[in-house]
Design a binder for these strands. Sequence first.
DNA 1: AGCGCAATGTGATCCAGGTCACAGGATAAG
DNA 2: CTTATCCTGTGACCTGGATCACATTGCGCT
Lengths: 214, 214
Amino acid sequence: MEKRRDLDWYLANVFTMFEPALKEKLKKEAILRSFQAGDVMMRTGQYINFTTMIAEGRVKLYRQGADGEEVFMYYLEPGNACAMSMVCAARQETSQVMAKAVDETVAVMLPIQLMAELMRDYPSWYMFVIENYRARFEELLLVVDNVVFKGMDERLEFYLKNQSDKLGKQELWLTHQEIANDLNTAREVISRLLKKLEQSGKVKLHRNYIEWFN
Amino acid sequence: MEKRRDLDWYLANVFTMFEPALKEKLKKEAILRSFQAGDVMMRTGQYINFTTMIAEGRVKLYRQGADGEEVFMYYLEPGNACAMSMVCAARQETSQVMAKAVDETVAVMLPIQLMAELMRDYPSWYMFVIENYRARFEELLLVVDNVVFKGMDERLEFYLKNQSDKLGKQELWLTHQEIANDLNTAREVISRLLKKLEQSGKVKLHRNYIEWFN
DNA sequence: AGCGCAATGTGATCCAGGTCACAGGATAAG
DNA sequence: CTTATCCTGTGACCTGGATCACATTGCGCT
């Protein structure tokens, strides 16, 4: 069992891109918060009071439809920040997305009123925000791509590849139903498409998990 | 015919949110560029060297697929900036989107190397960037919504309403083919759905234009 | 072992949309 | 006026995926 990590540790090992002065500032102002696997860290419509950065663990971001449907959009990994939570400053804004912890997750939380000050005083903060925003925006563009230009077969492949890359494993512990939920389709559709992928040798199916051969 | 407008005029009348010092700075550093209706202002894959803000006119932003298909994402209006062009700083980044002028359009162009300096020195620039980014991100989320949760009928209605709102007119000078292109579908589909909309009284069809009753 | 539930497999059917083929009607150009 | 071209309407047909109805199969629990 590894030792419990504190803010200092995360600043030194995860947020290496921050300048020393900014780290000092964050030591004074930021707090840590832990989540269990499966916890909903932020729900659609909730007020945003903190800029949230992932220190450890993994978070899935979803967009929700009017009648409770949802699509998986992208992962947040250690060193990433929630794009929306960085720009919902002045006026009290509500979240347009839902965030769910996949593993046990630790987040660095920063009162949103600090944003303007950090942006002004710490160039490395400005770089961090810009870079994060760009990355999130591009991931969202990929979602659009997949959904408007591709069929379910290609979307599924993209999804599996993405999972494998992000989780760093070939074994994907996902049921067909979970995949179907993330892609906003029906379980039967996923089962059938997975069969095809298996026949073409891209995947090996097991109960409760899938082997992805990249 | 109205008189020709210059950078001063746009700063005074369109970019009213900028602080005086920032306006002075922009007078020194920014240049104006004009585009004709129909001009492609930026194409997918092109290098981004300037932060682009719309001073006058109207611009449509598209995402392009692998084999040349395209979907309309959102409009940029006077006072808006291209989100991507604000964050492709340091490393030479290429555009992920295509921008096309609908009307005659004037843009304020700003060398992208200035971004960090502006961000640091002018709070109203920071607010501008953040607010623009947020707005673009939310519009992109709406695109995702429509495409994953809605059928073509609802997407068409959303599209027409959006056009009517953004262009400030009830008469939409669009052919069925153009609409089909923007929604990445077939003309026949649009024709049929428009017929239905006409029958339900939401729309009146004419040659080359459509009346939208909000 | 045997029960019960969750995960998976599979056929039948249905429907939105994409595709093809073609028929007007409107407009511009000669 | 005549022709060519662009826009729109419409029927016939096909396909991906959604939905429904079950049959299996594997695994945990007692």
